[in-house]
Amino acid sequence: MSAIIIFTAVAIAQLMLAAAMALASIRMFRGPRAQDRIIGLDTLYINAMLLLVTFGIGTGRVIYFEAALVIGMLGFVATVALAKFLMRGEVIE
């Protein structure tokens, strides 16, 4: 019984997060400006991180947590570098 509840919830949550990732990538492709694309990339990263944690609950493995942490850090560094580039025209001054 509890396995059915958890697997149903995990499946629905995965569908929702996949839809959120699709919407974020729509905004990333449509723009219209560079800052919209960058914030779309950031949203994509965060939703991918949440999807990995949800995979972790579905499979019962702890290893997905570490992958999620790495994705979160990469997303942060990537977004900061891109925002810096937009403002200054170079990343390292």
Partner: peptide, 29 residues
Amino acid sequence: VNAADIPLWAAVAVAFFLLVGATLALIGA
């Protein structure tokens, strides 16, 4: 760990918080 091992109240709580989080992420997108 196996999802079948956990008691019903915990399964309901996990499902509830999971769906709340995923719904908010979807509305945000």
